[in-house]
Nucleic acid binder design. Sequence first.
DNA 1: AATGAATGAGGCTTCATTCAT
DNA 2: CATGAATGAAGCCTCATTCAT
Lengths: 230, 230, 230, 230
Amino acid sequence: MGAVKSKRMPRAVREQQMLDAAVRTFGQRGYMAASMDEIAELAGVSKPLVYLYLNSKEDLFTACIRREARALTEAVRAGVRPGLAADRQLWDGLGAFFTHTGRNPDAWSVLHLQARTHGERFAAEAAAMREEIVAFVTELIVVAAREAHRDPDLAEGEVAGLAVALVGAAESLATWANATPGVTARQAAATLMNFAWAGLGNLMEGRPWSAPVMSDELSASGAVDVVHGA
Amino acid sequence: MGAVKSKRMPRAVREQQMLDAAVRTFGQRGYMAASMDEIAELAGVSKPLVYLYLNSKEDLFTACIRREARALTEAVRAGVRPGLAADRQLWDGLGAFFTHTGRNPDAWSVLHLQARTHGERFAAEAAAMREEIVAFVTELIVVAAREAHRDPDLAEGEVAGLAVALVGAAESLATWANATPGVTARQAAATLMNFAWAGLGNLMEGRPWSAPVMSDELSASGAVDVVHGA
Amino acid sequence: MGAVKSKRMPRAVREQQMLDAAVRTFGQRGYMAASMDEIAELAGVSKPLVYLYLNSKEDLFTACIRREARALTEAVRAGVRPGLAADRQLWDGLGAFFTHTGRNPDAWSVLHLQARTHGERFAAEAAAMREEIVAFVTELIVVAAREAHRDPDLAEGEVAGLAVALVGAAESLATWANATPGVTARQAAATLMNFAWAGLGNLMEGRPWSAPVMSDELSASGAVDVVHGA
Amino acid sequence: MGAVKSKRMPRAVREQQMLDAAVRTFGQRGYMAASMDEIAELAGVSKPLVYLYLNSKEDLFTACIRREARALTEAVRAGVRPGLAADRQLWDGLGAFFTHTGRNPDAWSVLHLQARTHGERFAAEAAAMREEIVAFVTELIVVAAREAHRDPDLAEGEVAGLAVALVGAAESLATWANATPGVTARQAAATLMNFAWAGLGNLMEGRPWSAPVMSDELSASGAVDVVHGA
DNA sequence: AATGAATGAGGCTTCATTCAT
DNA sequence: CATGAATGAAGCCTCATTCAT
């Protein structure tokens, strides 16, 4: 079972262990089906200690959402280098995104599914993160339009919709990749770049988007999978 | 209070009332937070009757998922005319999809959120519907490729990914449209067609996908909103 | 333990059984030490039924206070005949009071002790009853002054204090009588009438208040105890 | 926060701080609602230290009762000069009593309410003090009878009842005075002396008890309020 | 066809109390 | 002298579910 039971740890450490256990339990069982008993046991602690440090089931869940939202956004931010071209930034960001969601499937479940299905308070917490990502993508689209010498007669609402669509596609692919053995982060990112950048119309006619070399941390994952059309 | 309390109705009718109440309650409260008490009261029936007809909370939820999944897929199917070009079929299908989700937000919440967050059994039930839609889209993509005289050297997994991305984008837009006042089904469909068919790259360069006239039921909604680029 | 377990009773009856059990338990254990488990068992019912009918521990306690407060004030009211002289009314009222508290010691504990020691909400509930009794006594004092042809230059606050003192003395005697075997309601009433009406000063000088014949329901208790000085 | 946190104090001092905090907390929250956490924090000490010095919640509460009981009885004793007439002794004793309860409302709540509502053990502890006061009053009554040349054909039980009534009246007035702004210890004492010594009957006829000058510590309170009838 | 009455089981939360340092 | 870390036990409350009519 859970972590090795070593007594008397400083509070900060114990709190992280509890959050680890909680993310895992919430991710797998769902918020309501997860019991504080199970979480405490998985954390290798007694229930009262969980309450002493995290206050309540709601606060515990909120803490999980916050921690994982920050972790995800920072992973994406770390994967992107601001100076580069828009498509390159998107490619890098998607790579970081799929890598992170792939490595932390329970956290992804918490953020993408659980946080959105159990009350406004949690949904708002997760929506804040999503908005941050949508804003990042929106900015990329605007920049890309500028790069293409095409000042945005793309109406603002239009761009918002495009960003929502792109992010939704990414979320869908993340969940799909986690559930489908053999799909790598790189593949997911390539698929989405093709879809988003070239469009199905271009794809049909043999003009896909051509993928640049992946950023370091991703290529480290080892897979040298062929990107479609490359 | 729920429906007007009229005694002695045929079973089939009562069952639909119960499912109506259940979909509404599950959609708004969530599966676990919804209580059988509330559902029974909203349906204007006593609790034992709910159990007599629907057996258990799990079965009731399953019945909701099935009914709403069927309703959604049939709405989409009804919106599409098989003979037409692939993009036209997609456009019509998306129109029907967004129209239906917009008119039945609780059902959409049940299918897209609740069914996926409360255990494998329900998730599988909803996944079946999703697969049907993904299959429809996949077929469209293959057809489109064929139409473009470009026999699919699009690998099968590649097409699957594209379909998942497109469906995810649609789901994301549906939820976004439901939460954002002023966004019509037509707009959502147009945004997604631009995104999916033309690709951001083309959009940037001023070559959007051009929308055909909408199918009847949609134009009936009255809005004559301008589609980007049309 | 508890009442004979007979299933399926109408709600009103069950509620009274629950209140009986609750008054007994609260009176003997105290509000906080009383557990809902114990109350339910004593009532011969399962805990959920208690909650279904009485909502919460707080509401249950409030219901107890209200029922017993009403019972006590009505017992006193029923013992007094408005037309008679002030001292006679007080005598009758005290008789009814001590009889009731003697027969319902748990109820008396709930009203006099428990209700006042567990939060403003309950205290206010019990204070309402006490005020009613204090008002009754106050009125008697004013009437008595008028009877003695002595228009009240007794300041209003003065009378209030006297009433509070008299009621406090009665409460103290009630508790004392319940704890001291052999003290009857009649004796308690006589002691208090002597104390209150004659005053210690007069008593010392051999001029006690002379007790009239007791009202019916009290003499029914059988004891033919000698009233001091009679 | 409670007292200023200064480390390393002699045990006796720390204990008093803890008792101060406990009396305050028990008096305001009630015995059961008071948590050891709150008491420790208010005392500016860690919980284990409270246990080290006072053993348990029960022992802590007992210690509170004992300390405050002793403080109250000693205040009364200090207010009375044994040689004087009985009514004068009572007057002085009541003055000291109401002064003390007015200055220590939490202690009064602990003694009069909390100690009597949370189990025999505590009730007995408080009853001991009460008995001491009742005995004092009983003795006064006996002395008064003797002074009136009227050897007690007042039966012993009769006298006991009178003393209980008087003490109950005093307790009631103490609580009332604490809750009613503007009521001074002197007024409360005067009200009770009138009530007890003259009796309502005499009062009605314009023959109240006449108050002597107050003892020093009371007159220090400054108010030179007119005693009814003086 | 329909329901008022009833419950087993389980979850969240809090508390008095104790180690180990 | 003093405490941060930790827990067994127990209480309130709610829910899905059934029985007897």
